[in-house]
Design a protein around this nucleic acid. Sequence first.
DNA 1: TATATGACGACGA
DNA 2: ATCGTCGCCATAT
Length: 113
Amino acid sequence: MDSAMPSFEDNAEPNPAHLRILSVIRRIPEGRVCTYGRIAAAAELPGRARLVGRVLRDSPLADDVPWHRVVGASGRISERPGGTTGQRAKLAAEGVELTMGGRIDMETYLWRP
DNA sequence: TATATGACGACGA
DNA sequence: ATCGTCGCCATAT
């Protein structure tokens, strides 16, 4: 209660930029993926790809969006604490196949907002 | 105030 | 195709 600094807006989402990002992610269709950078641009935050990743990592609302459909521009699943196994399973369950290099064929699955 | 870190991405070698 | 560097900027220390 004292030492804990309010992180990420105190658990709430008063930040409109964060809400726009989450809103864009919510529109990614099942079986498709989008990139951090494209999502940022669609949320009127060009060049802020890292912010997208930060929101997914820290926002309590990130659990309510299809976060697993967000991948790197190269079709790679970004490393993150906890591992990428769950994300791969979720994508596989939607029919998103991986190349033998463990990557996503963006020509096929990329969704452009 | 300064430095480091990071669910990224563009670019050049 | 892969790798290192730099730009980006909110947070943490």
